[in-house]
Design a protein around this nucleic acid. Structure first.
Lengths: 198, 198, 198, 198
DNA sequence: AATGAATGAGGGTTCATTCAT
DNA sequence: GATGAATGAACCCTCATTCAT
């Protein structure tokens, strides 16, 4: 990548970031390209030159975001930590939560955009499923996941929890400092309401 | 309520329903009052005559919806069923899920509207907390809820799951017919990933 | 006029008054029939039943107002007072000024409504001219009006002052209490800036 | 000012002029931005791009108008003419009158707009008062203004006349050609109804 | 490649007026 | 005769997008 291209990529990146920040706070519809342009310090038309349309800008932003998320999950999975720790790291992904209405925002993007849905519904879903399976395997190996439970149910369970978390940034952030409570909830995920029976 | 008022209320109701249906599918911003008017078979202005503004229409729709939800929960709580059954009934509130993006839609409404937030954040939150506490008491009495776990954590856990479910109508509806899977997931809520240890 | 008709006339009158009061403060355009209806304590449709349209309501209100004004002028003219006193009474018609943007309001009505213009431009103008002539005659007889000055100029002069006063309710009302200043200005009207030269 | 800015200013000016012309004839409320846009030969949105809102457009138009008026008055004051001539020039400002419902229009603008009122009520009023004082001084020096009369009364007198004139473009324009009548009225302003006593 | 200027389409809202009771 | 309900037209304004430089 030469100097020209690097500068170009930097401008794209600054636009993407401005868009991301605004989208997260206000949602897609409420953010106008003029807002994004102001925040990125460029002209509206420059956004068109780089991305073609608002829709395509959203695509790019969402894609990037999801890829970053995947990357992070991959990292966590490969770390040398216990199953409960990994659960905690993934489910309570703090940067995601801090970022605000991430999940809702993502789902909305995906739901409202067929093309995006296809891209993500295939590649991304496949990867995340793959990773979740791996996590469950680790859990079973460590005795935290009941082998009698169907994988389907487990994955749905995890997905529901993740979405519940994503959908509750308000709750979560307000309780972030309370480490004990945090642990207790992660414990509930693993041992349920009945609790550990030693 | 005489004939006049009944007809008025019917019209209001038909507008509310049309609005609800559209809001659930497309979100508040994407739905124009003209859309609502078309669907309800009235003029746009009629909506203004009845509700005053789009914002107030949203208020009414959301309030109604939440009150209905409360009513249903109350009913379930008072039924003579086991704790897991009540959990299932409440958490997987099928009519809510069938209604679509209920949770997301609601949260958006509440998040973006201070007045509404106040109304619901006080009265509604108080009631639902009260009811959840009652449910947990029943769970403890029946041995399904570990008394050592803090109430705070339990309530947060339930809230996260409920939101996760609400935020996943796509997943849930697609799996609705599979009763076994349903039960399994409810089981996970109660016994965790570790599962029942007999 | 029997009981029925009296009640009818009362209702008309109450609507007219409500309209008048609002028109004076906010002007024709800014006042909606709904405002008038509220203030008069009737339905909008009742206004239609009585007056036919907003335009016609304005007609009636303006006509009534002008007739009242004429009546008052007539009274002043016939009183047994000096010319300067009559000048003062007519030019600084306190009730008119207190009523607010009367003059502007009237002129607007007249200017924007051909039919009304005709009615008033003929009958009313004729009457007021007649009366002004009479006033000037009295002034000449009492030595306050220079007989060498053309009647045309005098009448224009008076009209300009009257309009100037009408157009300045803000100034006038704020200075109302200062009787001396009041007299001084009336003095200026009669003796000019050069002042009395004895 | 380079080419870009010049063209921009020209467009702004053409919009302002179109607005001015329409406002003068029909008043603020009756003129829609779409009317202004048509007359100026631009899109409605262009007006928004340049002025932000209808309110702000009105501000600009009124401000400009008043500044022009001030400028003209200043010029007259500095000319080497007699007091009566200056009176005539200022009070019967022909271009203002020809412009139509100037005074009424202005007053309405000022009355209905707090921000504008502040701007004009302070700076503009101060300047015009200053200038009027200067005019009166000249009048006294030349023996046309009675030194015994209070300045307050004199200024009020002048203001009333000016407003009367402004409020009567119909009368004035119809009598414009009659120079003799014009003079006579100006004479009345100075010598009053009693007239010159030689 | 970047921008200021311009715009068509559409959204929420108000209002004078009509309809049905 | 009086009213609640309903509406078409118009208004101010915003936004994604294109044009011209």
């Amino acid at each position: 990548m030469n100097g020209f291209e690097r500068r170009k990529e930097q401008k794209r990146e600054s636009i993407r970031r401005a868009a991301m920040e605004l989208f997260q706070v206000h949602g897609f519809n409420k953010v106008s390209l003029s807002d994004v342009a102001s925040r990125a310090g460029v002209s509206q038309v420059t956004i068109y030159n780089h991305f073609g349309s608002k829709e395509k800008l959203i695509h790019e932003v969402v894609k990037k975001q999801m890829e970053d998320m995947l990357e992070k999950y991959r990292g966590i999975l490969r770390e040398d930590r216990s199953f409960p720790e990994k659960m905690e790291a993934i489910v309570f992904d703090k940067t995601q939560i801090a970022a605000g209405y991430q999940g809702e925002f993502m789902r909305k993007a995906i739901a409202s955009d067929p093309e995006l849905r296809q891209y993500l519904g295939s590649l991304w879903q496949k990867e995340i499923n793959q990773m979740t399976l791996e996590l469950l395997e680790q859990g079973k190996a460590q005795g935290f996941v009941n082998p009698a439970t169907s994988t389907k149910a487990l994955m749905l369970y995890l997905e529901i929890m993740r979405r519940g978390i994503f959908a509750s940034p308000d709750l979560i952030t307000s309780l972030m400092p309370d480490i004990a409570l945090f642990r207790e909830i992660n414990f509930l995920f693993i041992y349920g309401m009945v609790g550990k029976s030693e």
